[in-house]
Computed example of a mutant assay.
Amino acid sequence: MPEWNIAFGAYGAQGVKGHEFVARRLDSLAGFIASPVTTRRGLAARLRYLTSSPRQLAAAREAGLTISDRTIRAQQAGIRAPSARTLREIDAAYQRVRRQNVSRHLLARLNRQGRGTRVEFHPVNQSAVDRPRQRVVEYRTLNVRKWERIVGVWEAGDDAGLDAAWVDEVVVDLGSQWGQYEYVTNIGFAA
């Protein structure tokens, strides 16, 4: 039941939806190129990744890369500077293809042959909330064994689906207090 906390922050609590931290952590585990696409090095690395093989180029085309092969070659050679729209398109295609390529490996690492991965929930920051309105919320940990749906919607780039999957598959397993962990200050896990 996502969106349980419809008026979150009304009294000054600070936090972020848990699925956003999960997406950031999965992105960091995927190992994206660190240089931004706006730099020559970042653009060259993304184009090299997307065009390294015919299979990669086909996946990039499926992911929304519409620029021609001739334009790609000109940009790789530094003859033609890409527009802002083209840079966004290249970066989006790169992220989508990278997620597709690493999702199976990442899923195996997170599931750990059925043992799962320990996830840490850091509660919301209530320092700005008046004392009578503060809740007793504590740091919690949970061993998550079902990552298939979460990694699947992350791979697809579906933010609303990731929110629903995170709440339905993980947060509700915290018991009757699950609503207190829909918004958090951090979600931590390693794979």
Rank of each mutant, 00 (worst) to 15 (best):
A84I: 12
A164F: 07
P54A: 12
L43Q: 14
E120G: 02
Y183N: 11
T141W: 00
I72L: 14
S52A: 13
Q180L: 15
G188T: 01
G78C: 08
A60Y: 09
R98F: 00
E62D: 13
G64K: 15
T71P: 02
A44Q: 12
R140C: 02
V136A: 01
D27I: 02
R99I: 06
E120R: 03
N125F: 10
A23N: 12
N125V: 06
G42W: 15
F32E: 11
G157R: 10
T141I: 00
L50Q: 08
E3F: 03
L26G: 12
A74Q: 15
A190M: 00
W4C: 12
R104F: 11
S103R: 15
R112A: 07
L57R: 12
I90S: 05
G175W: 01
R61T: 14
G42V: 13
Q14D: 05
V129I: 13
F189V: 13
V184L: 14
S68M: 09
R85D: 15
V136M: 00
L174W: 04
Y94A: 10
A160W: 03
Q95E: 11
E20M: 08
L43K: 12
V167M: 01
V144P: 07
I67H: 02
L142E: 00
Y11R: 14
Q14R: 15
I187F: 06
E182P: 04
A190Y: 00
L162R: 06
E155R: 14
R140F: 01
S68H: 04
E182Y: 03
D69G: 14
H19P: 05
A108F: 05
A108W: 07
G161Q: 06
S176H: 03
H122K: 09
I33Q: 09
R25T: 11
A60I: 07
L57T: 08
Y49D: 11
D91Y: 05
E155I: 01
A190E: 01
L29R: 08
A23C: 08
Q134A: 09
Q14A: 05
S52I: 10
W4G: 11
D159Y: 02
R61Y: 08
N5M: 04
V171W: 00
S53V: 10
V151C: 07
G175E: 06
Y139A: 05
E120Q: 05
A30D: 11
A10D: 14
A58D: 15
G175H: 02
S83T: 15
T71W: 00
Y183W: 13
K146G: 01
